[in-house]
Nucleic acid binder design. Structure first.
Lengths: 126, 126
DNA sequence: CTAACCTACAACCAAATGGTTGTAGATCAG
DNA sequence: CTGATCTACAACCATTTGGTTGTAGGTTAG
C-alpha cells in the first residue's frame, strides 16, 4: 500500500508539526470546520472569540503541517482540509499500538516456551 | 464499546496534552522504548544525548498525558506505557476522518439528486 | 472612483517549552 | 557506615507559542 510508504518518508520534523498542530482545541475545531466544508479564513474566524490575525496564524500552523491547504479565490483564501495528513497521523499511532501487540505476543511466546505443553517437552535445545 | 465513551469524556485539555506529548521526537521514542519493554527512567535516559533531567521532564510530559505511568521499584522508577491513551488518540483521528467520509457521502447524495438517472432526463422540475 | 472587505505581515508581549546545572533525599552494594 | 546510583526538583536561560494591535495591499460592490 502507498500509505506505508508515506509513513516511511515522514521526517521527525513533519510528524512534530502534525501533532503540534493537533495539540490545540481551536486548531482542531478549524480542521473540523474545514472538513465539513471549505471556508474562507474570515468565515472561519467568525466562529472564534479571538482576532482575525490569531485565526490566520492557526490556519498557518495547520498549513505547515499539511493538514489544510489554501487556495485563492478572488480576495478570499479558501481553506481546504487535507485528510491525507490526518490519515498519516492515525496510521502512525496504529504503528505504535502494533508495537504493543508485538510485545504481548512476545510475552505469550515466552510463556508458551516455559510451559512446553503437556506432551512435547523441553527437547528443542540444539 | 467502552472506547466510544472514553472519547466523549475527553476534555479539550486532555486531548491537548496527548497530542502535545506526541509532538516531540524524543518523547515518541521514549514511548516506543517503553512499549517494547518497561524501563527505569535512567535506563531510558542513557539512549539520548541530553541530561537525565531533560529525559525526566519528557517522561513527566508523557505521564501528564497518561501515555505512560510510573511505578516505584526500590530506588528506580519504572516507566510503563499505557496503550489506552494512544488508542484514544488514534480513535479521535479516525473520528475526524469519518467527518470527511460523511462529507463525501453528502456530496454524492447531492449529485445523485441532481442527476436523477441516465434515462429520466432533465424532467424533474416538478 | 470610493468604500468596504479579505488577507498578509510586522512588532510586541506573556506564558509555555526544552534544555541546562545544581542541590538534596532515598536506596542499594560493599 | 560509605560511596555510588536513582530520582526529584528548583533556578535559570533561549526559543517558541498564542495572543494582541497596527499597517498596508489587493479585490469587490455600489
Amino acid at each position: 500500500m502507498v500509505v506505508d510508504q508515506s509513513l516511511r518518508d515522514l521526517s521527525d520534523a513533519e510528524i512534530d508539526r502534525i501533532f503540534a498542530a493537533l495539540a490545540d482545541a481551536t486548531r482542531r475545531d478549524i480542521l473540523r470546520q474545514s472538513m465539513l466544508h471549505d471556508q474562507s479564513v474570515s468565515e472561519l474566524a467568525r466562529n472564534y472569540a479571538m482576532s482575525f490575525a490569531a485565526v490566520q496564524k492557526h490556519v498557518a500552523v495547520l498549513e505547515r503541517a499539511q493538514l489544510v491547504t489554501k487556495e485563492r479565490r478572488g480576495r478570499e483564501q479558501i481553506v481546504h482540509s487535507n485528510p491525507a495528513a490526518l490519515r498519516t497521523a492515525a496510521r502512525l499511532l496504529d504503528a505504535y499500538e502494533a508495537l504493543w501487540r508485538d510485545r504481548i505476543h512476545r510475552i505469550e511466546a515466552i510463556l508458551d516456551a516455559e510451559t512446553p505443553q503437556s506432551g512435547t517437552d523441553q527437547g528443542t535445545q540444539q
